[in-house]
Design a binder for these strands. Structure first.
Lengths: 117, 117
DNA sequence: CTGAATCCGCGAAGATACTG
DNA sequence: CAGTATCTTCGCGGATTCAG
């Protein structure tokens, strides 16, 4: 959890890096993408983000929360319910993610690959 | 070098992932960013992308070349000269990188961080 | 100058099992 | 349901050396 700290002290502060440190990584893009369509529960996210383990899902969500991109909302119920949604800051990133997805989709079509999202 | 292959066979094909696999990673963002301003030589890139080793620079450039985002141009001279530039495909990503950098810069200012790029 | 080749440590990511 | 805990594995990336 002290990863961000390490990165900050280490290399020079560059806007491109700063941004990639926040939305880069293996699952963050997809996570933001799915949340951009609306609030989702923990389990729902886990099902949509294929191949992610609970551990990584939690970790990624925590990082996004620390960076102020994702809001965590706990309902004190039985069974427990935790919902995640984008903060205004996180919403600012949606257009980029969408553009990126469009670009990816276009490239995939050109290469004859199927695309599910 | 078979990394891309492994990724492809493994998880489902998702446009967001597809894109992030191509421009994600530690140095790719900065690399594209610097090349967006014009053709650069190998050594020049190494100097601008602080903290990168020759090995990683070569590796990242090769990956971008395989993905058709970067064009490698070798001049048969002594001393050798190798220049890199963005392909049309790579150029398509520039607006995205720039917007992302703007976003990062704005956030950094809000947090009182200096920004060099 | 522009790389290629090799070795290797360490942290990230995966698997699995368990809990409130 | 929504996570934790623990263990292991793996490959990124650094350091170094060598080549054309």
């Amino acid at each position: 959890m002290e990863k961000r700290e390490k990165i900050n002290h280490r290399d020079t502060v560059c806007a491109v890096d700063y941004a990639f440190q926040r939305i880069g990584g293996k699952h963050k893009g997809r996570l933001i993408y799915h949340l951009s369509k609306g609030t989702l529960r923990y389990g729902e996210l886990g099902r949509r983000i294929t191949g992610i383990t609970p551990k990584m899902l939690t970790q990624v969500l925590r990082e996004l929360e620390e960076d102020g991109l994702v809001k965590r909302h706990v309902y004190l119920e039985v069974p427990p319910r935790v919902e995640y949604s984008l903060t205004p800051s996180g919403m600012e990133l949606v257009p980029f993610i969408v553009l990126l997805a469009d670009w990816g989709r276009a490239k995939m079509n050109k290469e004859g690959l199927a695309c599910e999202n």
